[in-house]
């Protein structure tokens, strides 16, 4: 009897250890599906459950035809476009009612409407955006995303719609010493790991420390643990100077004014939604609705003609 239990436990553990998913998957899927609280939740739930049941045929289809055929159909079938974002004013942020607004958020809503689906915003950890996308927990990354090589090689990206530049942040009382690129060489920098700011620092051969996010880079400068930081100009505008916790910081040198650090929207590789969005951008730029939206959030200067 005791031995029987021990044997049973061993078998179960071995299965759990090596088989990983196995037949547990289906039960969990239903579980997870039940938890999906979105308006189109039942629809999505059915989708996932079916995916689990008809696993083989589904998987076969996906590998044969790629995601390209599936993505638009996939989003339309579940009735929801899941947009991966971070809390990042003025692109995506919450208003007093907890609704997501911002230049990106509003455009995403309009895009979803043009597809005839609901929009759902999901906050993600920025480092994991590619996991989120490929694992289908989101359908696109729409969050003032700089089109770096890393991004363009791992996602299918829309045409650039905004131009951003990188700026150097220093304490305000030292700002006049550091007004040109040459003067920066003696400083220690803090940059967000994998950001466009890091790319600039590398290009200029500056000494830098990687931190988790741009806000951390600012904290480094404020705390004096780094002399300076390189962040997005859009972000710098909102985060340093009067009325923020960084009233003593300011930005000086603009690092890549011309050579195009630009924002784009990222989709899964080979997705047909990319083309649809490019079309949508062209149309809404043409009828002026894009610019109007940009003006609402004060980013009109950065918008790129479509």
């Amino acid at each position: 009897m005791r031995k029987g239990i021990a044997l049973l436990m061993t078998v179960l553990l071995t299965m759990a250890l090596f088989a990983g998913c196995g037949d547990k998957k289906e039960a969990e899927t239903t579980e997870a599906a039940k938890e999906t609280a979105a308006p189109a939740g039942t629809e999505a739930a059915k989708e996932t459950t079916e995916a689990a049941k008809g696993e083989e045929s589904q998987a076969e289809k996906e590998t044969k035809e790629g995601v390209s055929d599936g993505d638009m159909a996939y989003v339309k079938e579940k009735g929801t476009l899941v947009v991966g974002i971070t809390d990042y004013a003025p692109m995506d942020y919450k208003d007093e009612n907890g609704e997501w607004i911002g230049f990106d958020a509003d455009m995403a809503k309009a895009f979803a409407e043009s597809l005839g689906v609901e929009v759902e915003f999901v906050e993600i950890a920025w480092d994991n955006k590619i996991f989120e996308l490929e694992g289908k927990s989101i359908d696109c990354v729409w969050n003032g995303m700089t089109l770096t090589d890393e991004v363009t090689s791992s996602m299918d990206c829309s045409k650039p719609y905004c131009q951003n530049s990188q700026v150097v942040i220093v304490p305000a009382d030292k700002a006049d010493q550091y007004q040109d690129v040459e003067s920066l060489s003696e400083l220690s920098f803090a940059v967000e790991a994998g950001s466009a700011g890091e790319a600039e620092a590398t290009k200029l051969g500056l000494e830098f420390t990687q931190v988790g996010q741009q806000a951390d880079a600012l904290m480094e400068v404020a705390a004096g643990t780094s002399d300076a930081a390189i962040v997005d100009s859009l972000m710098a505008g909102a985060m340093v100077g009067e009325g923020t916790s960084y009233a003593d910081l300011t930005y000086t040198v603009i690092l890549n004014g011309d050579d195009g650090e630009v924002f784009g929207v990222g989709f899964r590789k080979g997705s047909d939604l990319t083309a649809a969005l490019n079309e949508f951008f062209a149309k809404s730029y043409g009828d002026g609705s894009l610019m109007k939206c940009a003006e609402t959030y004060g980013v009109q200067a950065a918008v790129i003609a479509q």
């Binding site: 998913c21 998957k25 579980e31 999906t36 996932t48 995916a51 996991f131 289908k136």
Partner: peptide, 17 residues
């Protein structure tokens, strides 16, 4: 992330739950 990335079956959904 593993179920979605490796087994092409995101069992967790995208929401908070």
């Amino acid at each position: 992330y593993f179920p979605g990335l490796v087994f092409k079956n995101n069992i967790w959904g995208s929401g908070e739950a």
